[in-house]
Design a protein around this nucleic acid. Sequence first.
DNA 1: TAAGATAGTAACTGTTTACTATCTTTACTG
DNA 2: CAGTAAAGATAGTAAACAGTTACTATCTTA
Lengths: 182, 182
Amino acid sequence: MDSPSKHLPADERRAVTIEAVVELAGSINPSEITTAAIAKHMNVTQGALFRHFPSKEAIWQAVMAWMAERLLSRIDLAAQGIKSPLEAMRAMFMSHVEFVIEHPGVPRMMFGELQRAEASPAKRMAQTLIQRYAERIRARIEAGKAGGEIAADVDTQAAATLFIGTIQGLVMQSMLSGDIER
Amino acid sequence: MDSPSKHLPADERRAVTIEAVVELAGSINPSEITTAAIAKHMNVTQGALFRHFPSKEAIWQAVMAWMAERLLSRIDLAAQGIKSPLEAMRAMFMSHVEFVIEHPGVPRMMFGELQRAEASPAKRMAQTLIQRYAERIRARIEAGKAGGEIAADVDTQAAATLFIGTIQGLVMQSMLSGDIER
DNA sequence: TAAGATAGTAACTGTTTACTATCTTTACTG
DNA sequence: CAGTAAAGATAGTAAACAGTTACTATCTTA
């Protein structure tokens, strides 16, 4: 089934580490994930992690990068080839929801990271992700206005913020119970 | 100006402690607030806190109770005497926003607490607060349907979830920048 | 105004945390 | 197939944490 080998090449070990964190974040508070817990979850001793990452902060940074890359490419793919801006936004919304269902740890990591006071590298990556997301939404809204699908007097910036805010809020709501509501 | 007396009656000291936590939560990640930080912020030694609370968890529980009481009474007051359900909901929304602006630490405590995995008393209080909030919203929506102000085919539960989710999302968004957007 | 009760201090405890130093095992290469 | 470099195990460290303890200062009231 799984490779019986205990020794992994460095890049694979890093990938496994990232996945372990994302998985753990699905069931426990990200700020309570310790390096010991990560190591245990991937059947390795705690000290071994520091062969591949210089610090815990570096692990979190790698996780945020993984999340940003996967989420953005996922919504880009979903919207690809859909002419109607409104339909495209709907597709982006749905693929976002799918992604979150697959990886419940992702929004939890995001929320947790964005709450941090200090401007850590990981937090900056989370903010960048949201900005890039907002850009994509704004572009669709503008396209919708140009094509007459969206009223021209809509404040693009505010509407994009509302779009993202609503997703975040609904995701947060769904995290507090079951999650069939849509 | 302030009382020079260092000795406060127990109930006042508890109140001061709660305020200290809410204030601290406005500028640092709630999960990083230590008992030492709380004590320092209120000019008392760390050990003194445990004269008034049996544990840190008890402090958080008291803070959540304070928040729930203040927020619910605030929105009840705002909606009082407004006949139109839609107008009442708008008033509730605005007073909620006002409350959050006054106490930025409140939503951060809520988000932080709701992310916890364990079913701590404080988390349960946060969930109860949201439930009681949702009840109030649902009642207004039903009233709106009865009065013809809201379409009868609207799913009350889903709409209430959307209302709260949107507020939460927008609050979260505003926490990540300035906050003039409305 | 003295006695008891209440509130606060300072120093300490055991545990947990991220991170490190040293030794051992595995897997690749000439 | 021997030698070696990468990967992991073991066993630490210092700092930070919640909570405790022995003592002291301040209020209250009879």
